[in-house]
Simulated assay, not measured.
Amino acid sequence: MADYQFAVNKPDRVLINYNTVRSAELKAVYESLVSNRTVQSIVSDFAHEKEDNVRNCISFLHAIDLIERGGDDRVVSPLNRDMFPNLEFEARFLYHLRQQRFPKNHLTRIQNVALETADRSVTLDVLLPRVKGELDQYDFAWNETKLRMWRALSTQLGLVSETKTRGVILSPCRRLLYDLLELYEQQEDSTDLYSALTWIEENFFNVFETTTGSPRVHPAISDVLQNMESEDVLELRGMSDARDTVTLPESVHTQRSRSVNVYDLATLPDSPTYQYPLSQFEQVITQ
């Protein structure tokens, strides 16, 4: 696999201050880059959008190494497209957020803090003081506006979901976990669940509640795995001769925790349940 490349001359703007960008626009702009293009041609393609917002999308994609900008800042080209070339935009976006170095790694760390509540959901008023306490090393002040930006971006990517009664549900969409488990199997020729989940945590987003002893999958992540299992899309097995096991906590499907080692994926269902959020709704943006 090719080495990850960091873009040059990246904008200094704090990522979480791009509060007008949305995943739908970012995806549309990124997927319009079949080859090198000028900034003006991209802006023209999305003429019904405010020009400043399109330029903000280009700037954000540049900031997380999804695109490179030429020396005169007029030409835009895709970057790191040979990293996991068949990976969907949503998972690729999360991968790029995970690769960012301090201080541009703050967006990916919010989910880490949210999962530390050990709950399946969290409201922003509960999350905010935790973020302020644990992520106080950044040169900006955390507030609810910033968390709303993270929530909107993460919801559209399928990392979390939102309800009126429970706030932010910390479970990713089924398609995201399916794609990453499938990619790990293809990359490593292995269906070892502990190794796959460790790889996901290192490269995309946190999945474990604890990693000492027998690693325990966070309930919000485990719920999705067990939902997929109940739908016969994923098989999870415990093998006595396996070296590493992970613990899945109790859920609506099981009344007690259990240890598993390996997984098998069935064919991806042709169902809205196994689509990314952006694919479930008609896009507002047209090119």
Rank of each mutant, 00 (worst) to 15 (best):
L61G: 03
R175Y: 01
N227C: 12
G167R: 05
S171I: 01
R22C: 05
R92E: 13
S222E: 02
P172G: 02
P78K: 05
A7V: 03
N112K: 14
W150G: 00
F46M: 03
K27I: 10
Y30I: 07
E231D: 13
V34R: 09
Y274T: 04
R22L: 07
T108F: 09
S190T: 09
H48L: 14
T286H: 15
Y276Q: 04
C173H: 05
L128P: 08
D73N: 14
Y18K: 02
A242S: 12
H106I: 09
Q100T: 07
A24G: 12
V75T: 14
V34P: 00
L66H: 05
R256L: 06
W142N: 10
Q186C: 08
D192V: 00
A28F: 07
K10D: 04
L180K: 02
N19M: 07
T211A: 11
R120Y: 08
V14S: 11
L107V: 12
E185N: 15
L177Q: 00
G158K: 01
V233H: 06
R243S: 08
L234K: 04
G238Y: 14
T245M: 08
L15R: 08
I42P: 07
I200Q: 05
R98G: 00
R174Q: 11
Y30M: 11
E235G: 12
Q40I: 08
D3A: 11
D12R: 09
A242F: 05
L193C: 04
H96N: 10
E31D: 13
R37M: 15
L177D: 01
F208K: 05
I110T: 03
F205S: 01
R175V: 03
E134K: 15
E68C: 02
D45M: 15
L268H: 09
R98H: 07
A47C: 09
M83Q: 11
E188H: 15
H218T: 05
C57H: 02
Q111V: 08
D179F: 04
D3R: 10
R166S: 12
S214N: 11
A220P: 06
D179H: 03
H96R: 06
M239I: 14
Q156L: 02
Y194A: 11
K10N: 04
I221A: 05
D179E: 14
D241I: 10
R109F: 07
V54F: 04
P78R: 08
F89N: 03
V113F: 04
N227A: 13
E235I: 14
A266D: 15
K27M: 13
E134W: 11
P11H: 03
V39W: 00
T212C: 00
R243D: 09
D12V: 03
